[in-house]
């Protein structure tokens, strides 16, 4: 089966700095795939390049059989691909429900929009309770839920999650990982960038290990757990 998303020789540059040095990877429908690596390894750059927030220097990204290399971000959500960005970036001056409404901006089918509301309020009852509150007044964990909920409002087939547990209390962090597992059960394919490696390996099916913008190892999470390049990636042994 053709992968839902595939990247070939993806390269990202910031001026003279080569943040991502020609990586290739793929995600099958229904999988949870993790991108692992130390700070500055290029994980977020890969996600941002996929959705067109940073320009792709070279390489190709295919989503659902279509070439989306260098596509404008606004076209991707309607085609089923979205990113929940690092640092949550909820619209703090908008109410919770307006944030969610913006998440469904690209949808036109009324029934589909109604279903999306139902699903998000079902997953995050707290958001329904706080729907009229300004998003900026939510706690960090609630903002993260709002960020994920907002991304889910577009009914994505592939959701890119950038550091969903960053800066959250351990208890809330557990909820986020439970959510990731739950989303997979609902048929959402996920590409997750996380600094909490142990927990990510528990929920993900496969992973790629990045060091200085290159993939040094790929495989099933059970294999990666024992891999030596895993330690190297974080401790900088090479």
């Amino acid at each position: 089966m053709a992968p839902l998303l595939s990247a070939q020789g993806l390269q990202v540059r910031y001026g003279a700095v080569e943040a991502v040095r020609g990586v290739s990877f793929e995600i099958q429908q229904g999988e949870i795939v993790a991108l692992l690596g130390a700070n500055g390894a290029g994980k977020s750059s890969i996600l941002n390049a996929i959705v067109g927030l940073v320009p792709t220097a070279s390489g190709q990204v295919m989503f659902d059989g279509k070439d989306i290399t260098g596509a404008a971000p606004e076209g991707l959500a309607p085609s089923g691909l979205t990113l929940s960005p690092e640092g949550r970036r909820v619209f703090g001056t908008l109410s919770v429900s307006d944030n969610l409404r913006m998440g469904a901006f690209g949808l036109t089918d009324k029934d589909e929009i109604a279903e999306a509301w139902e699903r998000v309020y079902d997953l995050f009852p707290i958001l329904k309770e706080r729907k009229d509150q300004y998003a900026g007044t939510l706690s960090g964990g609630q903002q993260q839920m709002l960020a994920v909920g907002r991304a889910l409002m577009s009914n994505p087939r592939l959701l890119l999650l950038d550091e969903p547990s960053l800066g959250l209390a351990p208890l809330i962090m557990d909820q986020i990982f439970e959510l990731i597992a739950k989303l997979r059960d609902q048929g959402v394919t996920l590409l997750v960038v996380e600094q909490n490696v142990a927990k990510t390996l528990q929920v993900a099916d496969r992973g790629y290990i990045l060091v200085s913008g290159e993939i040094v190892e790929a495989g099933k999470t059970s294999e990666l757990t024992q891999s030596s390049s895993m330690q190297d990636a974080y401790l900088g042994a090479n």
Partner: peptide
């Protein structure tokens, strides 16, 4: 407030 994220929403 955040143009990049707004574009991500479509």
């Amino acid at each position: 407030e955040d143009f990049a994220v707004a574009r991500l929403m479509g």
